[in-house]
Amino acid sequence: MALIRVRQHVNPLSNKYQGIPALPDWGTLYPQPEQPLHLDIGSAKGHFLRQMATHYPDWNFLGLEIRAPLVDYCLRQRDEAGQHNLHFLFCNANTSLQPLLASLPPATLQRVSIQFPDPWFKKRHQKRRVVQPELVACLAAVLPSGGDIVLQSDVLDVAVDMSDRFAEHPGFYQTPESWLPTSPFPAQTDREEVTLGKGLPVYRAIFVKK
C-alpha cells in the first residue's frame, strides 16, 4: 500500500489541533477490553505497534498520532492484517490526553511508550515538545503502581529533557538510573531501525509509577 505524503512537522499548539476528539467506546473497540493496554504516544506509521500487537496477543495496543492521514493509513494496515488488539486515534496528546485516559476501563493502562518525538530544536519551539509537565501529570494520575513509561530518542537533548520531566514528578522513579543499553521491546520503530543501521546511538530510559 502506498503511503500518502504527510507533513513531517506539525505544530501541536496550532488552533487546528486544539479540539477534543470523540472518545471511543472501549467495550466495543477491542474484543477483550479488559486486557492490559500499551499506549504509544506519537505512533507515526504504526510500524512499532503492528509488530507489538503480533508479539503480544494478550495485550491491547493504542497509538496516538497528530497527523490524521497517518492514522487512516495505520487503520487500513491494521484491518488488512486482521489485528483486533490494535487501534489508532487521531489525537493531540498535549490537549486530549486527560479526557482520553479518564475514559479508559479501570486499571487497564499498564505501559506507555514515547519514542523519537519531534525534537523541536529551537529554544522558542521547545514548548511544542510532547513531554510537558501536564502530560506527565496526566499519566501519573492513571497509570497504576508498577506501570512503566519507556522513553526513546536518537537526540540526546530530547532524551534528557523527557527524562527530566518524569524525574521531576514525585510519582515516578527511573530504573535503572542510567540509559538502557538495549531496547526493552522485541520490536523497533522505523526511525530506530534507520538509526541503529547507521551505527548511531539511541538513548533509552524507563520510569516506573511508584
Results as ranks from 00 to 15, higher is better:
L64E: 09
G46E: 12
Q152D: 11
A93P: 10
K122P: 11
R128F: 08
H125K: 11
L86F: 04
Q35N: 13
K123T: 15
A53K: 11
D79F: 02
A102L: 09
H84W: 03
L97W: 04
K127Q: 14
Q83Y: 06
L135H: 06
P117L: 06
L39F: 05
Q35G: 00
L62C: 15
P117T: 09
D118I: 12
G63N: 03
C74Y: 03
P119Q: 11
D79K: 10
E134W: 07
P99M: 06
R111C: 10
Y56I: 08
L49N: 11
F88L: 07
F61K: 02
S96I: 01
L104T: 00
C138I: 03
R111S: 13
N60T: 00
C138T: 05
N85G: 03
L156D: 04
D118Y: 09
L109G: 02
H125G: 11
Q110A: 10
N85Q: 04
T54H: 14
L86W: 04
D118W: 11
D40C: 05
P36K: 07
S153T: 11
R67T: 13
S96L: 07
E134A: 15
A81N: 00
G63H: 03
A53V: 11
E65S: 08
L62H: 05
Q77C: 10
V136Q: 01
P33T: 03
L143D: 02
D40N: 13
G63A: 04
P117E: 12
H47M: 00
E134F: 06
G42F: 09
A141T: 05
S103H: 13
S103Q: 10
G42Y: 10
P119H: 09
Q152P: 00
F61V: 07
L75M: 14
L100E: 02
A44I: 00
Q115M: 15
R67L: 04
K45R: 07
Q115F: 01
H125Q: 15
T108H: 01
F121W: 15
P69I: 01
P105G: 01
Q115H: 01
S43D: 06
D154Q: 10
P36T: 03
A140W: 08
A44G: 15
R129T: 10
F90V: 08
P33G: 02
D58H: 12
Q152T: 14
P99I: 02
V150K: 02
L62A: 09
Q98K: 15
S145A: 14
L86E: 04
D154V: 03
I41A: 04
G82L: 08
V131A: 05
T54W: 13
F48K: 03
E80D: 09
D118K: 06
D72W: 02
M52D: 01
I66T: 08
A93E: 12
V130C: 12
M52Q: 13
C138W: 15
A137R: 13
S113I: 02
K123D: 13
H84Y: 00
R129L: 09
A93N: 08
E65F: 05
P106G: 00
P144G: 02
